[in-house]
């Protein structure tokens, strides 16, 4: 945990039951620098800084992993589907090409 980044996990729809298929959206505030852009003020090239891997897991069991490159937009957004197995916790772990590690989790509370 190098630096607390603003990130968010969203479930769509908000109300769901165990066994339903829902969307899990993950958004993080991150510059996603490509390493080829110049800083207009100093004229120096901004060093590359982008998220390179993401893992979605349910109660510690990974169900989706991603390899990400710098061609993904600033403040990236990723959306996947999942079948709700029951009560638990969704955790998203993400690392950066500079070695910065972060994670975000949210409780999964199916009703009914």
């Amino acid at each position: 945990m190098a630096e607390a980044r603003k990130s968010m996990i969203k479930f769509k729809p908000k109300k769901f039951k165990a066994g339903d298929t829902i969307k899990v959206d993950f958004i993080v505030i991150h510059p996603m620098e490509t390493g080829t852009r110049k800083d207009k003020k100093t004229g120096k090239i901004k060093p590359a800084k982008f998220i390179d891997s993401i893992t979605f897991s349910f109660d510690g069991k990974p169900f989706t992993s991603m390899k990400v490159w710098e061609t993904v937009s600033t403040n990236p957004y990723f959306s996947v589907n999942m079948k709700v197995p029951g009560k638990g916790k969704i955790t998203v772990d993400y690392t950066d090409n500079t070695g910065e590690k972060n994670s975000k989790s949210k409780k999964l509370k199916p009703k009914g």
């Binding site: 298929t21 969307k23 490509t34 349910f58 169900f63 989706t64 061609t71 993904v72 937009s73 990236p76 957004y77 990723f78 959306s79 996947v80 589907n81 999942m82 079948k83 197995p85």
Partner: peptide
Amino acid sequence: TPMNAKGYFATRIK
């Protein structure tokens, strides 16, 4: 993985 239940993915790229 099969736990995803649908072959779906969305993102935003440059």
